[in-house]
Design a protein around this nucleic acid. Structure first.
Lengths: 97, 97
DNA sequence: ATCATATACTTTGAATTTCAAAGTACTTTA
DNA sequence: TAAAGTACTTTGAAATTCAAAGTATATGAT
């Protein structure tokens, strides 16, 4: 018998990480503050989820200074975009079976 | 600024529970064995997730005997169907923003 | 000038969740 | 009647989630 959830990617299987990726596939970059506001999450929580996506090489992190303030920019990697697309397709398939 | 993940339901935000609900909204009933095979999960894991959905009153559990064997049937409740639909709409909205 | 508050994160670890191994209670097959 | 299978439940270790507190610097008020 076939496994209907096998193509769902565990890394993306959380609302916050799904939200982060949704933002990063349509925007070239997003910084910490923007993600935090769009998602409505606490600092520590956002940091954990971006770290998980970074560990999976699905997002890239660039740190710089804007004026004298630190700024962290996140962007989706090539493989991040590919695997996210597959994940979205798996969810859509599951939901309309 | 608007929170783009606020309408995602935490109870459904896991691939196994999403899978269980997907099955139960299109089938009037599914038993433990069927869910286990369709989802490819271990017994204990499935029991935890059905329990979480039951606690949220999103599924109903009916225990009986088929012949002399125990059988557990799961079905989606009215509120389960309503909230699942909302959840699916929230995901779809998030993904195509 | 200095004190308080704000910005932009990071670190930490408690709380919760996930998961599978082992257990229970039969039934079926040899 | 012994061994293996079915249908779950219980248990608790492991992993994950989350927010409080910490670090470092900037900005605004007195």
């Amino acid at each position: 018998m076939k496994n209907i959830i096998i193509n769902i990617n565990k890394v993306f299987d959380h609302r916050i990480r799904l939200g982060i990726m949704s933002i990063l596939v349509v925007n070239e970059y997003a910084d910490f503050k923007t993600l935090k506001e769009l998602l409505g999450v606490t600092d520590g929580n956002l940091a954990s989820h971006t770290k998980a996506l970074e560990k999976a090489t699905y997002i890239k992190v660039e740190k710089s200074f804007i004026g004298r303030k630190p700024n962290t920019k996140y962007s989706a990697t090539k493989i991040g975009r590919i695997d996210f697309k597959k994940h979205v397709e798996a969810i859509e398939k599951l939901l309309k079976q």
